[in-house]
Design a protein around this nucleic acid. Structure first.
Ligand SMILES: [Zn+2]
Ligand SMILES: [Zn+2]
Ligand SMILES: [Zn+2]
Ligand SMILES: [Zn+2]
Lengths: 165, 165
DNA sequence: TCTGTAATGTTATAATGTAACATTATTTGG
DNA sequence: CCAAATAATGTTACATTATAACATTACAGA
């Protein structure tokens, strides 16, 4: 089954982001329920902080915010929660930014392709079978067995291009 | 003009690496000559250290080696040289490893696609117009203007797969 | 040779990430 | 329910990666 999904499109700066957050938390809860995993208050809080916008969030920014309301937080607190969330596909790490974004599609494991706007900082995620398949095909030609693909594209989103800049 | 180049293939562990190094330095000198840039002894030394193998090299490993023979080296020494080399396309940074690999094709600007073997650590680089083009095509569909592409693929190279493991 | 710019030196510190062990919470088998 | 095992979090310390800011030296062009 071939799929070319837009997991997370660019959204106008004016969109109702609360809805993104709410549905992401709901999906995360469902995913953990089904998988018998514990979305503890701490993990949920970190997930909410990652989902505070469509811009990738830095671990230490999460930490700073987490401390307000959870004073015992330290770097391992955040990194452990982020590790858990990544393993569950609830967040992705953007390697080129050392930062994290939420994923709205934890059900299917995928590595995704990320498009990062240099102006507004927003990230869109695709899970595109054409890109994925082509990379595998090219790898196969020289006997390389792919297990993980990182595709991070910098550029300028439609909205930012339209608004002059 | 469409090009699907293998900039740097996987090479057997037994290959004559001295030749890779020699030709990379030669190409770098030529590139700097033509561009009117200075491949200073320091920069050349850093380039040699990056080219010491086909495994990505860490900045602080370069630094440690640089110090032997150039005791005044400090982090900025290395990062400045690496910045210069990156700008000139003489090395690429592998974002997912925070490490650097040499590029044998400084003449044409490109971002490349990197295939990283989890066993031997070697990296192969393609500059594949199909992958590149497909990513741009997909981006165009939602009005995204690409300026830089990061493609880093983890997996297992032919040689490592053959040798059991 | 003078002079501006590029390159390097030097010190300090910021930003990112992990190791190791202690404590607390939760689950599970009796 | 209780005890033991396991999972999650707390805590301290440190390792790794990267940059800021300013001083000095080398070099190219007038
Ligand atoms: Zn939103
Ligand atoms: Zn934008
Ligand atoms: Zn070689
Ligand atoms: Zn290998």
């Amino acid at each position: 089954m071939k799929k070319n999904k837009v997991i997370s499109p660019f959204k106008p700066a004016t969109h109702k982001h609360q809805e993104c957050l709410t549905s992401a938390i709901k999906a995360a809860k469902a995913h953990c329920d089904i998988s018998g995993l514990r979305l503890t208050p701490l993990r949920q809080r970190v997930l909410e902080l990652v989902w505070q916008s469509h811009e990738p969030v830095k671990a230490y920014d999460v930490l700073d915010q987490l401390k307000q309301g959870h004073s015992s937080s330290a770097p391992p607190t955040v990194y452990r929660a982020l590790d858990f969330l990544q393993e569950q596909g609830l967040v992705h790490k953007i390697e080129s930014l050392n930062a994290y974004v939420g994923c709205g599609n934890p059900e299917e494991i995928h590595s995704g392709q990320f498009f990062i706007c240099r102006d507004c900082g927003f990230v869109a995620e695709l899970d595109d079978a054409d890109i994925s398949g082509l990379i595998e095909k090219k790898a196969n030609r020289f006997g390389f067995k792919v297990d993980n693909k990182m595709v991070e594209i910098n550029g300028h989103c439609q909205e930012c291009r339209d608004s002059g800049k």
